[in-house]
């Protein structure tokens, strides 16, 4: 390679990198624009919005956030969503970890069949079961209750969670299990004290996805809640829009509030998200 070519190559690479950054920024602007626009609208006073779209908040103010909490029982909606989401995540985690333990460490007849049964649940779309589930909830008197909001969506994550946690448990050396048993530790103690802490990265991946799905779910809470006090924030907010469509800044303040937890989780758990995507596709 002559010394005249080398600088040219370097320059070409630098130009290519600059071009790539330019495209990266351009794409980011387009993708993030809906989030930005919601924030910009939420921060704008009502009078400014009446004059047309606000790409940048004029006289930014947080008053729409306070007004949104006054206009609708947003606090109650949020509380419901927090309770329901944690119920779903905890329930999925408990059921999946326990089942995964049996598949990874115990030997019993028809193990394969049971495992396939757990995996097969991932093929059943929620829409195929909502009508009978709704009828069940109604006959049990579980409509408009936390139990009804938690127990049905809970099932959608057990199959994947069991699969994922089993894979992590399988990476633990079997000697660990045998040693613990020889020491007289009960199997539950081994699971909670040794297997689960060593597999916490798997549990973290699962928790992130379970939380995103639980927090963002729409169809099931729409069906089983009819009283305002039991509504989740996703349903409550969408109903606000039919009440009064002109208060865009209030509506967007509500949207920003419900987006904050999931966006925070997304930013804090990039590694888990990337690994979870590889481990299996996750859809809400």
């Amino acid at each position: 390679m002559s010394d005249r070519v080398f600088p040219t190559v370097c320059r070409r690479i630098r130009v290519a990198t600059l071009g790539r950054y330019f495209l990266l920024v351009l794409c980011t602007i387009v993708i993030v624009f809906p989030f930005w626009y919601a924030l910009s609208t939420a921060l704008s006073p009502t009078e400014a919005l009446n004059r047309g779209p606000r790409y940048w908040p004029a006289d930014p103010t947080f008053s729409a956030f306070a007004d949104a909490f006054n206009a609708a029982p947003l606090g109650r909606f949020l509380l419901n969503t927090v309770v329901v989401s944690f119920g779903i995540v905890a329930g999925q985690m408990i059921a999946a970890v326990l089942a995964a333990y049996a598949f990874a460490f115990l030997s019993f007849p028809a193990k394969r069949l049971f495992f396939v049964l757990f995996l097969a649940t991932m093929m059943i779309p929620a829409e195929a079961t909502i009508i009978p589930n709704y009828l069940t909830m109604r006959s049990w008197g579980w409509l408009d209750s936390y139990a009804g909001l938690v127990v049905v969506p809970l099932t959608s994550g057990i199959g994947f969670g069991t699969f994922l946690m089993r894979q992590f448990f399988l990476q633990l050396p079997l000697e660990l299990y045998e040693a613990a048993r020889v020491d007289g530790a009960s199997s539950l103690r081994f699971l909670l004290r040794i297997a689960l802490p060593l597999s916490r990265s798997g549990a973290a991946i699962f928790a992130v996805y379970a939380f995103l799905n639980a927090w963002n779910q729409y169809l099931w809470p729409l069906l089983v809640t009819s009283s305002e006090s039991m509504r989740t924030v996703q349903i409550g907010l969408a109903m606000l829009q039919w009440a009064d469509t002109t208060w865009w800044n209030l509506l967007m303040a509500g949207v920003v509030v419900i987006l904050l937890p999931t966006l925070a989780v997304l930013f804090l758990s990039q590694k888990q998200l990337a690994k979870g995507v590889i481990a299996g596709a996750i859809r809400g």
């Binding site: 989030f35 996703q234 967007m252 997304l266």
Partner: peptide, 23 residues
Amino acid sequence: FRTLFASPMAASVSAAALIFQLF
């Protein structure tokens, strides 16, 4: 950039629908 590209997956369908309704 990767996180920002992935960010729409944090949006719920109601949040997305309401923002696009504004659009």
